[in-house]
Design a protein around this nucleic acid. Structure first.
Lengths: 338, 338
DNA sequence: TTGTATGCGTTATCAA
DNA sequence: TTGATAACGCATACAA
C-alpha cells in the first residue's frame, strides 16, 4: 500500500503543501474557506499529519513517559490515570515503562528516552538503592524528570510526595492505642528514601510511646511473593508480634494469607495496617485499615509540574517538592471495637 | 541547550555520519574497531539516535498502541503487562490510551493513531454499541488492529477471546447446584458482543435446568458507581434474588457494598459469583467466587498475533480467533459448604 | 492569502 | 570499510 501524505492531499486539492500544512496548525494565516475545504478532504481521505515528521521538524514529541516499578497495583493505576487526564487535556500522549523494580531496566529506559521520544519523564523510582552518578550526570534540562512517591534524594529534580513520615507515625500510634506492644514493620527496601522515611515514622512513634524498638521486628522483604510468604510466616511464629504495619500493600496481602494459613485471627491476635490505595480495602476479611495516598492527585500534580517545567526549563533542576496528604482510614483489621 | 546529534558525534570522532549510523545498525559492514570506538564515545556523550528521524526514515515506529476502557482494574493491568513483556522482548514500545468506556474517545484515538505513531493497535472495545462504519472503512492493512476480550463482531480483525459462553454457563450452573432459584444477571452492556455472549450462557443454563428466565432479573448497569449502587439495591429489595452473577468485577464489588448496607448475608441469603481477575479475591469477605480469565496470556497472545501480522500483513484482515480458557474458582461467596 | 525552498536527524544507495 | 548525497513528511521563512 502506498503512502498517503501531505503531498498527495495537496495534489488532490490543487494546493501547495504549505497551505495544507497551515490548515492543521493554528497560528498561520489561511482563509477559513480553504481551511475548511482541506480539513474536510483530510477527514474523507483519512489523513493525519505524520507524527514523526512533525516532531522531527518541531523538535517536540508531545509525549510524556511514565516509569513505574509495577503496573498491577491500584496505586500506580490511579496515578497514571491522573497523569493521563492532565496530559490528554493538553493533547499530550503517554508512554508507559514498567521496571519490575529493576534498577538496570530503569536506567536503560531513561537512557533510551534521551532519543527525543518523550519531552519529559514522570517516574517512581525502583526499589534498589544504587549508584546514581549516571542519572546525576544526565542533562535534565533537555529531558526533564519529575519524581513521585519513590524518589532518589541525591538527584536534583522536582518531586511530588506524600507526608509519609507523619502517616507512619500516626499509623503506628493508632496500633499502639489499640493496645499493641510488639509491632512489626514490613519494609520493601530499607535503603530507598521512601523506605527510610516511612520506617522513621514508625520508630519515632514507638519511642514517643516508650515502646522498645526491636530490630528483629523490622523486616526487609523482597519482590518475590513466595519468599515474602516464608519470611512473614517465620516472623509471625517466632516473634509473635501483636501488630503489623506494612509499608506496601502487597505485604499486607501476604500477611493476610499467612494468618489464614497459620490460623492467626485478625484483629484478635494480630492487628494490621498498611499503606494502600486499594479501592476495595473495606471488602477484605477483615476490612483493611489503610494509609491511603491521594494517588490521582499525585499523578495530576506530577503532570502539572512537568508542564510547568516545559514552560520554564529552569525548574527542571530545582528540588521543589510538593507534599500531599494521605488519609489514615481505620477499619476492622486494626480495631476490635471498630 | 543546543542539539546533540549524529553530526556532532561524527565530528567528534572524525568520521562521517554514515559510518556512525552504521555502528548503531546491525546489518551494515563496519570494522569492529571503529564500531567499538563509536559506541563508546556515544555512551560517553550520552547520544541516542533520534527516534523520530529514524522512524521517519524507516517508516516504522516500533511502537504498539494499547486502547483499554479503564486502567484501574487487575484484568487490564495484567493484560497490559502481558503485552508489554512480548513487546519489550522485541524491542517495541507501548503507548497507552484509556477510553473511560467512551466510544467517541476510542474513535478519536484510533483516528489519531493513523499518523504513523504506532505500527499496530491492541484494543478491548469500549462499552457502547454503535455505528462502526468509520472503523470498518479504515485501512487495517496500514495500521493493524487486534481485539482482545471485548470485540466488535462486524470488524474484520484477528481477536483473542476467552470461552465466555461456557464460563457463564458453568458459573450459572454452579449457582443452581448450590440451590439458587432466582439468579440475577448484572450486565454492563447487553449489546456489546461480550455482553451478549456472557448473557446467553446464563440464559441457556437456566433453560437447561428448567428455571424460568425472568427479564427483570437481567439488569443493565452503567459506568457510574453511584447509579449502579442504586440499581442493585433496588433490585435486591424488590426482586429478592438468591443468587447474583455479575459480568464484570466492579459490579460484584457494588453488590458486596449493597449487601453490607442492606444487611443481606453472603452466601447465606445471596450467593455471588463474578467475572474477575482480582488477585486477592480470596481475601474478600466472604471470599469471592470468580471466573478468572488468563489475563497475562491474553495480553501475550494478542501481542504475538500483532507481530505475526507485522510479518504477514495479509493476516490483518482475517477474522482469526484464538480462544483461551477461563477458570471457575469456587469460593465462599457462592457456597455455604465450601 | 498562497506558493517555493530549505532543513529537522536519520538511513540507504552509490561511489570511492 | 568508509564517505557523499538524497530522501523520509512536514513546517517555516521568505517570496509572490
Amino acid at each position: 500500500m502506498e503512502p498517503f501524505n501531505i503531498k498527495k492531499l495537496a495534489q488532490a486539492l490543487n494546493l501547495s503543501t504549505s497551505t495544507v500544512s497551515r490548515a492543521f496548525r493554528d497560528n498561520a494565516d489561511i482563509s477559513a474557506a480553504t481551511k475548511e475545504r482541506i480539513l474536510t478532504m483530510a477527514r474523507e481521505m483519512n489523513y493525519q499529519p505524520n507524527h514523526y515528521a512533525s516532531n522531527l521538524r518541531e523538535q517536540k514529541s508531545r509525549t510524556i513517559a511514565i516509569i513505574v516499578p509495577e503496573l498491577a497495583n491500584d496505586y500506580f493505576s490511579q496515578v497514571i490515570h491522573g497523569i493521563e487526564r492532565v496530559a490528554r487535556a493538553r493533547d499530550h500522549h503517554i508512554l508507559i515503562y514498567v521496571t519490575d523494580d529493576d534498577y538496570e531496566k530503569e536506567l536503560a529506559f531513561i537512557r533510551h528516552l534521551h532519543n527525543g521520544r518523550a519531552d519529559g519523564i514522570i517516574m517512581s523510582a525502583s526499589g534498589e538503592a544504587n549508584d546514581h552518578t549516571y542519572l546525576k550526570n544526565l542533562p535534565h534540562q533537555r529531558l526533564p524528570l519529575v519524581f513521585f512517591d519513590r524518589v532518589y534524594e541525591d538527584i536534583a529534580c522536582p518531586r511530588i510526595t506524600t507526608n509519609d513520615y507523619d502517616s507512619s507515625f500516626q499509623a503506628t500510634r493508632h496500633l499502639i492505642k489499640q493496645g499493641c506492644k510488639r509491632i512489626a514493620y514490613l519494609a520493601v527496601n530499607k535503603n530507598l528514601s521512601i523506605g527510610k522515611t516511612r520506617m522513621q515514622g514508625y520508630i519515632d512513634a514507638l519511642l514517643k510511646y516508650k515502646l522498645p524498638v526491636d530490630d528483629q521486628l523490622i523486616i526487609d522483604c523482597s519482590n518475590s511473593y513466595a519468599e515474602n510468604s516464608r519470611i512473614i510466616k517465620e516472623m509471625l511464629q517466632q516473634l509473635q508480634p501483636d501488630g503489623v504495619f506494612t509499608s506496601v500493600e502487597r505485604l499486607a496481602f501476604a500477611t493476610y494469607y499467612a494468618c489464614y494459613d497459620l490460623g492467626i485471627s485478625i484483629p484478635g491476635e494480630l492487628k494490621v495496617i498498611s499503606f494502600s490505595s486499594l479501592e476495595i480495602a473495606a471488602l477484605l476479611n477483615p476490612s483493611l485499615s489503610t494509609i491511603t495516598q491521594p494517588a490521582a492527585d499525585i499523578g495530576r500534580e506530577a503532570a502539572r509540574m512537568l508542564f510547568r517545567i516545559f514552560e520554564d526549563p529552569a525548574l527542571a533542576g530545582s528540588q521543589e517538592e510538593l507534599v500531599l496528604h494521605s488519609r489514615l482510614i481505620k477499619r476492622h483489621s486494626s480495631a476490635v471495637d471498630f
